[in-house]
Structure formats: C-alpha cells, structure tokens
Simulated scan of single mutants.
Amino acid sequence: MRVLLSGFAPFGGSKLNPSWEAVRRLDGIQTADTVDIYATKLPVSYREASERLLASIRVICPDIVIAVGQAGGRDAITPEIYAMNKDDSDKSDNEGTVRINQKILEGGPDRYMTDLPVHEIVAAVQNRNIPSRISEHAGMFVCNDLFYKLMHALELSSRPMIGGFIHVPYLPEQVTDVADTEAPSLSVDQITEALREAAIVSAKVFSEKIADIS
C-alpha cells in the first residue's frame, strides 16, 4: 500500500513550514510492514501546487494521497472534511497572486467530501497523546485550492484511490517569527508522528474497503 504525503514550502515570511518539515521525515519510510510512504514538496502557488501534486501521483501511483498544510493559530492536528469550490482570501501566494471570490472549477460541485477515515485518524492521533480534531473545511487559500483539485482528480481517476487534507499547527520555533507570540504550536516530532498514524490508519481502512469489494 503506497501513501503519498505532500507538504508546502515556507510562505508569509517564515523560514519553515511545519507541513514539509514533518512530511519530509517520512519520505521512504515503510511502516506497518505493508505501508510505504512517499513525500513531495509543493510551492505555495495557486498555479503550480496542484500540478506538482498530480505529477507526483502519476509517477508514484499511490493508493492514498494526504496533502498537508500549515494552519497558524490552530492547536491541533485537524483533518479536513470538505474541499470548497472557491478561492477567497486576501492573502497572496508566493507568486503574489490574490484570488477573491473565484470559483476553482467552473461547473464543478460546490464541495467535495474527503474519503479519508477522518474519525479514525483523529482517534489514532489522540491515542498518541497528540491533540487532534476534525475541521469542517480547509479555508479558502491555497490549501483549499489544492484539496479541491486533488479530490476532483481522484473523482475522475480510473484507479481506486482515496485522498484528503490535514492541517497542522505552527512549530514552536515559528512562533517567535509571527505577530502572535502566544500562538499554539506542536513539535515537529509530534506532527510527524500524527501524520505517520494518519497514513497507517488510512491504509488499514482502505485495505479493508478493497477487500470487501473484491
């Protein structure tokens, strides 16, 4: 079972992005005997992020795709339920692009629902004494744009795959660089362990689903 994790490059003036710092630690890891984890780094770009992720999917041919991004201000690992068909943020991506109240895909559904086992992921992460809870949707910035385009691609895929998005908090060393020095954070070890659990749980549930179908 192959799991592809993606993380984002730094943005907003920070030198780090917790999504990539954690994801890259899992690249090439085999866990639970049957789960191989791969990692890919994405630019914070409306134009390029999904293109890079879909290119990695074509090369790696994963069974599961988990995109990961930073959510500064959150205090927990938060799997997202819905990808919304809208970009609407006054923040610019790393190319200077701002998208206000724009459809991601004309004629596409208003939202896609993740098919990751989000409740099981939250429970597994909490069992590791790492804070986790479900989030309704991934905002309206590049993270959501990537999530929506990923789910649309999986909807059209001829291969059985599941995918979704997980947001992670700041790293402690980032907090000194942001305006809110009281912002919550988790260590890179905690985030890495949480994402490892997410990969294992997703693989287990997907394996059982495939077995039931066959």
Score class of each variant (00 low, 15 high):
A32D: 13
Y148Q: 04
L150F: 02
S89P: 08
H119F: 08
R111K: 13
V178C: 05
S202R: 03
S185N: 01
P169W: 05
G164S: 05
A194D: 01
S207C: 06
F8N: 01
S185Q: 00
G73T: 12
A22I: 02
D90E: 14
Q30F: 06
E51C: 09
S92R: 03
A211C: 14
I66F: 11
R24C: 12
R128S: 15
E48A: 11
N85I: 00
L53Y: 14
R25M: 15
P109K: 13
A32V: 10
Y46I: 03
S50Y: 00
P62Y: 00
N94C: 10
D180E: 12
L54G: 07
V59M: 15
N94L: 06
E155C: 07
V118P: 01
A123G: 05
P109D: 08
F147Y: 09
L42T: 13
N127W: 11
H167N: 05
A55L: 15
Y46P: 02
N144A: 05
P18K: 11
G96Q: 08
S135N: 10
S135K: 13
Q126H: 00
Y112R: 09
Q126R: 11
L54E: 10
T40V: 15
Y170C: 05
T192L: 06
P169Y: 00
D87E: 13
D75G: 07
R24I: 04
L150P: 00
H119V: 08
P131R: 11
T97L: 03
I60C: 04
T31H: 04
R196E: 05
V65L: 10
A22F: 02
D27H: 15
V35F: 14
D87I: 10
G72S: 11
R128L: 15
A71C: 09
H119G: 13
G72L: 10
E208V: 09
P18F: 07
G163S: 08
R159C: 06
N129Y: 14
I210H: 10
Q126C: 08
H137W: 07
S6I: 06
S50N: 11
A153W: 05
L150C: 11
I166Y: 00
A123D: 14
W20T: 04
R99A: 04
D110C: 10
S45L: 01
V59P: 03
M113V: 15
A67C: 07
S92H: 14
M161K: 15
R133M: 09
E48F: 12
L5V: 10
A203D: 12
I77W: 01
D212S: 13
C143D: 01
I57W: 00
A49W: 03
L116E: 07
G12N: 03
S6R: 04
H119N: 15
L54R: 08
M84S: 12
V98T: 05
K41D: 07
Q102C: 14
E21F: 09
N127Q: 11
P10N: 08
K41Y: 05
C61W: 03
I57H: 02
R196T: 03
I66N: 02
A67K: 01
L116P: 06
K86I: 09
L5H: 06
Y112I: 13
L195A: 09
G12M: 01
F141P: 01
Y148D: 02
A9M: 08
G12P: 02
R111I: 06
D180L: 12
E21G: 12
R58W: 04
A199F: 02
P43Q: 02
V175R: 06
A76V: 07
N129V: 03
